[in-house]
Amino acid sequence: MAISRLPSDAFEPVHRGKVKEETFFRPSLTYWQDVRRRLKKNKMAMIGLFTIIIIVLVSIIGPVLAPYSYSEMDWSATNKPPSAKHWFGTDNLGRDLFVRVLYGARISLIVGIFASLINLTIGVIYGGISGFVGGWLDNLMMRIVDILYGIPSLIYVILLMVILEPGLQNILITLGVAYWLGMARIVRGQILTLKEQDYVLAARVIGVSWWRILLKHLIPNSMGPIIVTVTLSIPSAIFTEAFLSFIGLGVRAPMASWGVLASDGLSTLQVYPFQLIIPAIAICITMLAFNFLGDGLRDALDPRMRK
């Protein structure tokens, strides 16, 4: 019999005090550590992130190290194909395309990031007020958003650009003004759902002021979708800027933006296709990188994915 193999003290009782409440089931990860872990596991998002970092670094350092400036013309070397001397070749004025693409990256990133920050600010304030106050004000504010949403944003971006002088500053203003609608809707939706959460009710029962509820409870918990929306709005801002510059409403020569480069390259497409293809590829890679990162962030931040 199995019992006979047991040591003689086997059935002695184990003396212990009260069972303590100290067992932690789950590894101790804060929300953001958890997000980072999931993001790291997502290959596409990591590729996107690294691409973005490389683009940022190169666009900052590259022009400093390059032997040419973006506006320096060399009449002896116009329309040169890519070579060891000019990595991406030169344009019809003999300007080095590599340096110009790097400068374009600066402008694109500036536009993307600042336009997103502007629409973040407007969107969070507008959507926050709308969702938080609720009632008729919410109704009114959301109907205004609906009406603006009905107009294709490109139309009033173009209209605004025609009224304002083309230039970097005005592009930022235009994009900021045009793209906050989505952000406002998302923030409002978040606030509306969070407002009914038990922990917000608990805070109200305690007597926490509205201001503190907004700052401590509502905003921190809606950070996830806000970050995703910001990340995903960067590529669309970059693209809109490129488009505006392409049709001549954006950045003006000799400033180099990817849209300007593509526009310049278009006229010589049949003879020197690289002049169009290179900026086009730059736009594609940047947009893809931001979109990958944004999608990865969305998966990483989604609380439903939490185990």
């Binding site: 959460q197 038990d198 009710l201 029962v205 921190p220």
Partner: peptide, 28 residues
Amino acid sequence: QMIFQDPYSSLNPRMTVSDIIGEPLEVH
């Protein structure tokens, strides 16, 4: 005061336990 049904959703996921319990102490 009030105690709620869903133990998870009644606590703010971004606050530590000491912040959660400390909040009423600070407010009052």
